[in-house]
Computed example of a mutant assay.
Amino acid sequence: MEPTKELLFTYFAGQATSVQQKVIGEWLMRPASRETYFQWLDEWERSFPQYAPDLARHLDQYRQRLDNPAIEPPRFLRSLPEASRPFGHPGRWLVAASLAFILSAGGWIFRKPLLYKTITTGSYQLRSLDLPDGSTVALNSNSSLQMPRIGYGWFSRRVSLTGDAVFDVKHLSTHQPFVVQATNGLEVEVLGTEFSVRSRTSHAEIVLKRGKVNLHYAPVDRATQNLLMKPGDRVRLDEKGALQLQKQTDTTRFAHWRYRLFSFNNTSLRDVVNQIRVVFGVDVQLANPALARRKLTGTIRAGSSDELAEALAELLNLKLSHRDQNLIFSTPTEIPITQ
Results as ranks from 00 to 15, higher is better:
227 L>Q: 09
15 Q>F: 04
148 P>I: 09
122 G>I: 01
175 H>A: 04
247 K>Y: 13
293 R>W: 10
58 H>S: 15
165 A>V: 07
173 S>C: 03
164 D>P: 05
20 Q>C: 08
112 K>E: 15
31 P>M: 08
234 R>H: 15
175 H>I: 03
319 K>A: 02
182 A>I: 08
214 N>G: 13
190 V>N: 10
158 R>M: 11
223 A>N: 14
231 P>Q: 15
153 G>R: 04
232 G>T: 12
22 K>E: 05
87 F>N: 03
306 D>V: 05
309 A>H: 00
242 A>G: 05
65 R>W: 11
55 L>M: 14
160 S>I: 07
294 R>E: 01
92 R>A: 05
145 L>R: 01
223 A>Y: 10
313 A>K: 01
111 R>P: 03
195 F>E: 07
276 I>K: 01
94 L>F: 06
314 E>R: 00
292 A>V: 02
15 Q>G: 07
302 A>F: 02
60 D>Y: 12
110 F>D: 12
307 E>P: 07
253 R>M: 13
263 S>D: 14
334 E>H: 00
192 G>I: 05
119 I>K: 10
122 G>M: 00
44 W>V: 04
207 V>N: 04
233 D>F: 11
63 R>D: 15
15 Q>W: 03
90 P>Q: 05
153 G>W: 01
248 Q>P: 06
66 L>W: 14
18 S>C: 04
216 H>M: 14
325 Q>C: 03
305 S>T: 08
162 T>M: 12
197 V>L: 07
288 N>M: 03
184 N>P: 08
222 R>K: 15
259 Y>D: 15
308 L>D: 04
92 R>S: 03
225 Q>F: 06
274 N>Q: 15
88 G>T: 11
5 K>F: 02
277 R>I: 06
115 L>F: 07
195 F>H: 05
122 G>A: 03
229 M>R: 07
18 S>Q: 06
77 L>I: 00
47 S>I: 02
191 L>M: 11
224 T>A: 10
204 A>V: 10
271 D>F: 07
224 T>N: 10
268 S>Q: 14
319 K>N: 04
97 A>R: 05
189 E>Q: 15
170 K>H: 01
113 P>K: 09
136 T>I: 06
188 V>Y: 05
118 T>D: 08
289 P>G: 02
202 S>C: 10
140 N>T: 09
334 E>Y: 00
206 I>D: 07
172 L>G: 00
257 W>D: 10
293 R>T: 12
100 A>K: 05
229 M>Q: 05
180 V>F: 02
33 S>H: 13
109 I>H: 07
321 S>I: 03
291 L>C: 06
3 P>I: 02
326 N>E: 13
72 E>Q: 15
268 S>H: 08
128 S>D: 15
96 A>H: 11
303 G>D: 13
5 K>H: 02
236 R>K: 14
105 A>W: 09
50 Q>F: 09
118 T>H: 09
288 N>R: 02
93 W>K: 14
259 Y>H: 14
273 V>H: 01
42 D>F: 11
233 D>W: 12
272 V>F: 03
12 F>K: 06
176 Q>W: 03
299 T>K: 14
153 G>Y: 03
208 L>C: 08
236 R>I: 13
257 W>R: 10
200 R>D: 13
57 R>P: 09
302 A>K: 01
96 A>C: 11
26 E>K: 01
249 T>L: 06
150 I>G: 09
117 K>C: 11
145 L>W: 02
37 Y>R: 02
122 G>H: 04
155 F>G: 04
121 T>M: 06
118 T>C: 04
147 M>A: 07
